[in-house]
Design a protein around this nucleic acid. Structure first.
Length: 479
RNA sequence: CGGGGCGUGGCUCAGCUUGGCUAGAGCACUCGGUUCGGGACUGAGAGGUCGGCGGUUCAAAUCCGCCCGCCCCGACCA
């Protein structure tokens, strides 16, 4: 239940976020450092995200499977970059059943290695390919600095793992799943994202190439919201994932992996939320509509509740997710604020006046106060509501896109860069090295978020090295 | 892991400097009455080994030591 006002977004974005997560009833802190409890309201949101993604995975030919949470420690050691990337943040089990284990088990930080083990057993022939498997699970990375949803020691996600006969097929799969993530972000979460390639220093440990979707949060920082990796033959060689091709020659497979996590909930919060609380995109909201009945006495109660039931039934009949807030211990005003905190896209108020006139009061969450309120007839309520939800879904996306555009700059030199990167994203011509990246990060806190897939024609002058280049990069401070 | 801050009913905190009597307040909670179209009012009630352990003292929430935990800021990451 919500108390009073949140800290304002502009004054203390971080504290605004922390309090909002708790007060919107999404999650709570766990007794174990860095871990989170996702509460039913937050989990329902995650379930809706899962469904929207799972639908897309199935439509592109993938199937789900379950893989163990424990991985022999030696598996991690087999791929050099992979172990270097993950060993600092592994949780390791050394005792089982009261006995010291012969070989320590790591709690999976990601499943590439145990997938490698399984695929090497399963794949013998080109006829076995491709293998297209997805896992819904949680993974553990011993993070030092944590924040609910954005970075926790355990988080929930999906990880897709595929194996292919050729580089081209693996690359096509990697890009296909990046596009699936983009489609999900745009059309379900209402998040504008930039698709791009990670630089060498930012790519996944063990990957050949990592692609990302990057989103701008309400404080203009960037958040990597999903990643898709072309793993080349790195894991195939480490785990002997081999097949006989049509010419009876032994070949290593080309594998991919791609993941999107509960972090996306953080992205939704930080992109759409306002000082009143959360604003959820209608496609994903646990409740799309909340109905608040209003009455002063027994005489008014009967007719009001009858109208509420009638409206609820029509909305349910139209396939909408509807909640009637029938609590009699709090006032309507309290309920308005409470559901605004939780981000329900639409509120319907039904009181004696509405019963009299055959209307309801409709309030849009994306337009606070009177501006978002209108009176609509009870007749045909379902189509009114459905239309309003569509408008909100579109408006949230447009607003976020406009915000990103307004806060994306094109500095021409390092002096300009330093200035703009304090207040937004920098899209720049870029021909720098790994060392240049490190120096820029040291001096400005900004990192290369990605090399966008959509590049302009022609060439320009690198803002840092002064060299001519055909490539642009996006730099930003990031979560 | 380095720097800073904080641990007192469920939550936010006061009390600690200068040790002492029954450890307080607001919010939340329970029961009753009046309310109800933007965070209601009122009366009664319930709820605390003062983060833990040890020390000093006739006496510790208060002073000392050690430990634990959480939050914020920095190096690594979805």
């Amino acid at each position: 239940m919500s108390g009073e006002k949140l800290p304002s977004r502009t004054e203390d974005f971080s504290e605004w976020y922390n309090q909002l997560v708790l007060r919107a009833d999404l999650a709570d802190y766990a007794p174990v450092r860095g871990c989170m409890i996702i509460k039913p309201y937050g989990w329902t949101l995650w379930e809706n995200i899962q469904q929207a993604l799972d639908r897309r995975f199935k439509a592109t030919g993938h199937v789900n499977a379950g893989f163990p949470m424990f991985i022999p420690k030696s598996f991690l050691d087999r791929e050099k970059e992979h172990v270097e990337g993950f060993s600092p943040e592994l949780a390791v089990v050394t005792i089982g059943g009261g006995e010291e284990l012969e070989e320590p088990l790591v709690v999976r930080p990601t499943s590439e290695t145990i997938i490698g083990y399984a695929y090497s057993k399963w794949i013998k022939s080109y006829r076995d390919l491709p293998v297209l498997i997805n896992l819904w699970n949680s993974v553990v990375r011993w993070e030092l600095r944590t924040k609910l949803f954005l970075r926790t020691a355990e988080f929930w996600w999906q990880e897709g793992h595929t194996a292919h006969a050729t580089y081209e097929e693996a690359e096509a799969e990697t890009l296909q799943m990046l596009n699936v993530y983009e489609d999900f972000a745009l059309n379900e979460a209402a998040l504008p994202v930039v698709k791009g390639l990670k630089t060498e220093s930012e790519k996944f440990a063990g990957a050949l190439k990592s692609y990302t979707i990057e989103a701008m949060m309400g404080d203009t920082k960037a958040l990597q919201s999903g990643t898709s990796h072309n793993l080349g033959q790195n894991f195939a060689r480490a785990f002997n994932i081999q097949y006989l091709d049509r010419n009876n020659e032994l070949q290593y497979c080309w594998t991919t992996s791609w993941g999107l996590s509960t972090r996306i909930i953080g992205a939704i919060i930080m992109t759409h939320g306002d000082d009143q609380g959360l604003i959820l995109p209608p496609h994903l909201a646990p409740w799309q509509v909340v109905i608040v009945p209003i009455f002063r006495n027994d005489a008014e109660q009967g007719p009001v509740l009858a109208a509420v039931e009638q409206v609820k039934a029509e909305l349910l009949g139209a396939g909408l997710r509807v909640k009637v807030d029938d609590r009699d211990t709090v006032s309507p005003g309290f309920k308005f604020n409470d559901w605004e905190m939780r981000g329900v896209p639409l509120r319907i108020e039904i009181g004696p006046k509405d019963v009299e006139t055959g209307t309801v009061a409709l309030a849009r969450r994306d337009r606070p106060g009177k501006a978002g309120k209108s009176s609509v007839p009870q007749t045909g309520i379902a189509s009114h509501v459905a239309e309003a939800l569509m408008e909100i879904q579109a408006a949230l996306f447009e607003r976020a896109l406009a915000f990103r555009k307004a806060n994306t700059y094109e500095p021409k030199n390092y002096a300009e860069f330093k200035e703009v990167v304090e207040k937004g994203w920098a899209r720049v011509w870029w021909a720098g090295s790994r060392e240049d990246e490190a120096r820029i990060k040291e001096e400005t806190k900004a990192t290369v978020r990605c090399l966008p897939l959509e590049q302009p024609d022609g060439e320009g002058i690198c803002f840092y090295t002064g060299r001519p280049t055909r490539q642009q990069a996006i730099f930003a401070r990031a979560y």
